[in-house]
């Protein structure tokens, strides 16, 4: 199954809409609530990053019996130094983003902690792509 959502840059009213929709789907699919939390927290961090740092993008969520694969693809400034961006505490968030309760430089690290796999690629001046994989238990 494949679900696609568009993410608007700068729109904090809508930030989280994609995560919220996908969470409802995962619940309907009877995915374990602990695993749902890991998936949607990762997705939400990525979604807020697109709203906060990029010029818009999209999210593609794919679910099969063994795993959930999420791609967050944005058009934007890109990340010049991914290793640095991954460090807890590093943030270039604007005052507006901080006012919304974000911008502590913890998001990417939190995605890494919640996901089974995280791949980040980015080109400065073009955009950023995150791929988040969470395995589903087999029974």
């Amino acid at each position: 199954m494949r679900f696609e959502y568009n993410i608007e840059a700068g729109n904090f009213t809508k930030a989280g809409d994609a995560s919220s929709s996908f969470k409802k789907i995962l619940k309907q699919l009877n995915v374990d609530s602990q695993i749902i939390k890991r998936i949607v927290v990762s997705l939400y961090e990525g979604e807020v990053n697109i709203v906060a740092h990029a010029n818009g993008g999209k999210v593609i969520c794919e679910v099969d019996t063994s795993r959930v694969n999420i791609q967050l693809i944005d058009v934007g400034p890109g990340i010049p130094d991914i290793e640095k961006a991954m460090q807890a505490g590093f943030s270039t968030a604007s005052a507006k983003v901080r006012e919304m309760g974000f911008g502590a430089g913890m998001g990417l690290q939190n995605i890494k902690n919640n996901a089974d796999q995280l791949f980040i690629s980015s080109e400065v001046g073009v955009g950023t792509k995150l791929e988040i994989i969470v395995n589903l238990p087999q029974n």
């Binding site: 904090f12 009213t13 930030a15 995560s19 919220s20 939390k37 961090e45 309760g101």
Partner: peptide, 25 residues
């Protein structure tokens, strides 16, 4: 978003829609 506790109460002075979104997630 980094907290993983059951039966949690959140005290916050941040009051906007993302306060609720974050709690939902």
């Amino acid at each position: 978003l980094t907290i993983d506790s059951e039966k949690l109460l959140l005290l916050t002075g941040l009051v906007n829609i993302q306060t609720i979104r974050t709690s939902e997630m």
